[in-house]
Structures are given as C-alpha cells and as structure tokens.
Amino acid sequence: MEEKKWRNEFFDNYFKIEVDDEQKWLDCKNQHLTKIFQYTRVKHAKTLILDDLMYLREIKDLNDPFEGDLLYDLDEFYKNPIKNPSLDKSDIKNIFHEANKSMKERVYIACFADKNNITPMWNHYSDGHEGICIEYDLNDDKLLKQIFFPIAYVNENRNKEILRKLYNGADYGKLTIETFSNKSIEWEYEQEWRIIIPKGTNNMFNIIWKDNKPYIKFLKPRSIYLGYKIDERDAYFIKKLCEIRDIPVYRMIKDNSSFNLTYIPYEE
C-alpha cells in the first residue's frame, strides 16, 4: 500500500466513532512503524546520543501555524438545532476558539520522519544540512509504539469532520489524538510520525525535566547520519560521542545519478 494511501486510510478508519476493526488498523500502523528518524541540530546531539532523552514540544512551538486547528463552518454550527438560542455567531466562534486552544495546551509532541534522505527535512530541521539525522529501531518496542501515530495529509473537509464528531459523542481521548494526527497536504513531503502524550494523565512514560524542558526516556540510537554540509569539527564531535556507545556513523552525500541523498560510512 503506497505511503499516502495507507496513512489516510488509517486516519479515516481508526478514528471512526464506531470502529469494528480497530485492532486491524493498529496492526497496520505497527507494521509500518519499524524504524524512524529525527532530524535535528548538532547542539542536541549529546542529550539524544548519550542520555537517550527525547525532547517534547508543545503545539505552540511547532512551525505549522495551523497545527492542531479544528476547522469549521460557522454557519453550519449556528444553524444546528442543538445550539443555545441565546448564543450569536461571535459567541460560538469564541467557544470553538477557546476549546481548541485548551486542547492544544494539553499535549506534548515529538516529531519524526520515516526516511533519512528527505532533502527539505535536512534543510528545515537539521540546520541547512549542517546537522544530523538519528535513526531509531522500533521493531521490538511494543510499549513505545502505542504512542506513535502517523500523520495523514488531508483537505479541509476531512479536518472539519473532527469537530462534528465532538457533537456526536466521540471519545474525547481518541478525538485528541485525531486532532494532532492530521495536517494540510502541503506538508506531505515530511512523511511524519509523532509521539502524542496527553499532559497530566497517568501514562506509561514519566516526564523528565531538564533545564526546564520536558523529555521522556527514549531509545538508544541505531545509527547517526551527518548532514552533507556538516562542519568537520562537528562531525568529529558526533563521531566521538558515538564511539562511547558503539553507534555507527554515516555521512550523507548527493547521489549524482538522481535528485536524492544517499550515505556512506563516515571516515575522519
């Protein structure tokens, strides 16, 4: 099943109000969730490589201005017979805004991709190819897989269905996950996976605070990939960190036969 198709089918089926084959779609998700990559800057290397700590972000810190937004048609909800007749359109708009804002403040996010050679990702998240990309193996970690979800890249109409579900009695916890598992199709190149952790719940992962920032204990990296423009001093620094934990290091290079990046073992 091609990448976009299975992601959107998972999104459309797993998040139905009534799902008869929920486990089928969780199994589908986990079959695709074998290894993931995080693009990042060199300054974060020590925490990720030596400490196995993964930084958790809040929605307001992400770069998509529509991140976590629930779209709606105001006229549609204003005409809804269950509305309070004392509310005008501006009241309803404020209610939606505050509800959405509250939802955004209740989760932590960590973002990943499913490939190590996505050129825009290197440019946007790995310091213009001067950073690194870290590979993690998720094959045997059933516990961690439970909080990983693929992002579906959808149109406005599919997003608008989420708020309608709230009025139709959808499970709020699952609705929260659905809210942060979709983005505009213009972000499709990222092929993103993300960890979604509700704040203030008795979840399976303890939040670790370091320098006033939230982290979770994560996995030992499987491999490290150096950006093809990385400074040699930074490359040497990364190599020495990886030697401590016996982690292989590769360097990204341009594939001269295509518009793709590939990699080779890093040699000092």
Rank of each mutant, 00 (worst) to 15 (best):
G173T: 08
I162V: 13
L144N: 02
N212F: 12
I59T: 11
F11S: 14
E98D: 13
I207V: 13
P265I: 04
H44N: 15
I134N: 00
K165Q: 15
Y228V: 00
P221V: 05
T262R: 04
R194T: 05
F112E: 00
Y167G: 13
D88I: 08
K240R: 09
K199M: 05
W193K: 05
D52Q: 08
N117F: 01
I17H: 07
N84T: 11
I244K: 10
L87E: 15
N155P: 04
L71S: 12
R57V: 03
K240M: 08
A152T: 10
M121Q: 11
F77M: 03
L70W: 08
L143E: 14
F112A: 01
F259L: 13
F237W: 02
N94H: 14
W6C: 02
E186Y: 14
I197G: 03
E268P: 10
K174C: 05
P120Y: 04
Y228N: 09
E161W: 03
I216D: 02
E22I: 12
K174W: 00
K199F: 01
F180K: 01
N117H: 06
L138C: 11
P65A: 11
P81W: 04
K145S: 08
I151W: 09
M204E: 14
K217W: 02
T179D: 01
N94F: 11
T179S: 05
R251T: 13
D88R: 09
D141S: 09
V154F: 13
N30H: 13
P85N: 11
D171L: 05
M103I: 10
N30I: 08
K29L: 07
R7T: 06
T47E: 06
I185M: 10
L143R: 12
K35S: 14
D64L: 06
H32N: 12
F112H: 00
A235M: 00
E267H: 13
K29F: 01
K145L: 07
K104I: 01
N260L: 08
L50K: 05
L138F: 11
I244P: 00
R164G: 10
D51S: 14
D231M: 09
Y263C: 12
F259Q: 12
Y153R: 02
E178K: 12
N84A: 10
K183W: 10
K83H: 08
L50Y: 01
D91T: 04
D12S: 15
E18K: 15
P221N: 06
D21I: 08
F37I: 00
Y14A: 05
L74G: 03
W187C: 04
L219C: 08
I216G: 03
L163Q: 01
K174Y: 02
I162W: 03
I247M: 00
C133T: 04
E9V: 12
N80M: 14
F180E: 03
F11P: 12
D88H: 09
L166V: 11
F11H: 14
I134G: 02
I95V: 09
D231A: 11
N80A: 14
Y236H: 06
Y167F: 15
Y39L: 07
R233E: 07
W209L: 06
W187V: 07
E76T: 14
F205Q: 06
N212S: 15
S86M: 15
E186V: 13
Y172S: 13
Y250R: 05
E67V: 04
F96S: 00
K213W: 05
Y125P: 03
C242W: 00
I49F: 03
C133P: 02
E98S: 13
D51V: 07
